[in-house]
């Protein structure tokens, strides 16, 4: 089997977890993998599951120029596929790489398997209302992997690293970056997501959800469409068909009744806990555990219990 090229995003010189998951997904097909990243001098041994690494030199502020270099690397290394995490960067780059290779793209995959030297993708349609198993008849397979779904490889990365250059003339480039005010994880990335809806009563009460998230440490706050439309929370936090689809290990739906478009966005979570006043709310149909009652009374007690557990650990 030919190798798969995997784009690795770096944070402070180290691979992002989402990229290690993409490398893990590529490696799990049985193929050799090549990790490629922008920035010379980065530590290729931390690219778990890669047999080879390529560092791209040059200005990496342009997605279009970077995508050209990635497509060139697919060709020059005779790869069978290109993969990246379905992150902001991955979802921006992968379609460009696919078009350079004149190949179809499978975005946000939840399964990638190899059969008879052919890679197949499993991915949600309609935010997960339907699961599609797809095959490509292109000579190169292009895919992005949903965050929090795949596990990274146990093998450490290579100690040698080749270089290649980003050389295409940019058509668009990043001139500045503003980091988010809080260091809060994105809902698609966080292992624990605590989402609130109308049942929180008023926007100020979301501080209770932030308190619970802080008690977990690895959690972030999400929101239903209703509270985003009402202007209580930013769209970046919205979980559902017109927001983000998430698969955390643990998902809390607090004061969310469970409209079909919300359920589509969170039903692949590991464990779902619902807290709602209305015992008949549809959210309880998908929840593993439910508590009926007023979230504003339950949350402080729950937060205290989680704080105690974390203090013991």
């Amino acid at each position: 089997m030919k190798p798969i090229l995997v784009f690795v995003e770096l944070t402070a010189g180290a691979p992002r977890r989402a990229s290690l998951e993409a490398l893990g997904a590529a490696r799990a097909t049985g193929a050799e993998t090549i990790a490629i990243f922008a920035g010379e001098g980065s530590n290729s041994t931390s690219c778990n599951g890669a047999q080879k690494a390529i560092a791209l030199s040059g200005d990496d502020s342009s997605s279009d120029a970077l995508a050209s270099a990635l497509a060139e690397a697919v060709k020059s290394n005779d790869c069978s596929g290109f993969m990246a995490a379905a992150s902001s960067a991955g979802r921006d780059l992968a379609p460009r790489v696919a078009a350079h290779l004149d190949a179809v793209l499978f975005s946000d995959c939840i399964g990638i398997t190899a059969a008879d030297d052919q890679l197949n993708a499993r991915r949600p349609w309609l935010a997960g209302k339907v699961i599609a198993d797809l095959a490509s008849n292109a000579s190169v397979f292009c895919a992005t992997t949903r965050l929090n779904v795949f596990t990274s490889s146990e093998e450490t990365g290579p100690d040698v690293c080749e270089t290649a250059a980003i050389s295409a003339e940019p058509k668009a480039r990043v001139v500045s970056v503003e980091a988010k005010a809080s260091a809060q994880l994105d809902v698609q990335e966080a292992p624990v997501v605590i989402s609130g809806g109308r049942g929180m009563g008023e926007p100020e009460q979301f501080s209770l959800l932030e308190g619970l998230a802080a008690a977990f440490g690895n959690a972030t706050v999400g929101a239903s469409r209703a509270v985003v439309d009402a202007g209580w929370r930013p769209h970046a936090e919205q979980v559902g068909q017109t927001g983000k689809t998430v698969s955390p290990q643990l998902y809390f739906a607090v004061g969310i009744s469970g409209a079909i478009q919300h359920l589509a966005g969170m039903r692949t979570s590991g464990v779902i806990v619902a807290i709602n006043k209305d015992a008949e709310a549809p959210i309880f149909k998908v929840a593993d555990y439910g508590i009926v009652g007023d979230a504003l009374e339950i949350l402080p007690v729950l937060t205290e219990a989680i704080q105690e557990i974390k203090a013991e650990a």
């Binding site: 190949a103 179809v104 499978f106 197949n120 949600p124 349609w125 997960g128 209302k129 339907v130 699961i131 599609a132 198993d133 797809l134 095959a135 490509s136 008849n137 292109a138 039903r267 692949t268 779902i272 806990v273 015992a279 309880f284 149909k285 998908v286 929840a287 593993d288 555990y289 439910g290 508590i291 009926v292 009652g293 007023d294 009374e297 339950i298 402080p300 007690v301 729950l302 219990a305």
Partner: peptide, 29 residues
């Protein structure tokens, strides 16, 4: 280039349960 091999409804989640009512249910959770 993409061919659909199969479309399936998402697998149903295992039956969940209501653990109780109000803050008293927190220890059970």
């Amino acid at each position: 280039q993409a061919n659909v091999i199969a479309l399936t409804p998402p697998s149903p989640r295992p039956e969940g349960r209501i653990l109780g009512t109000g803050p008293d249910a927190v220890p059970v959770l």
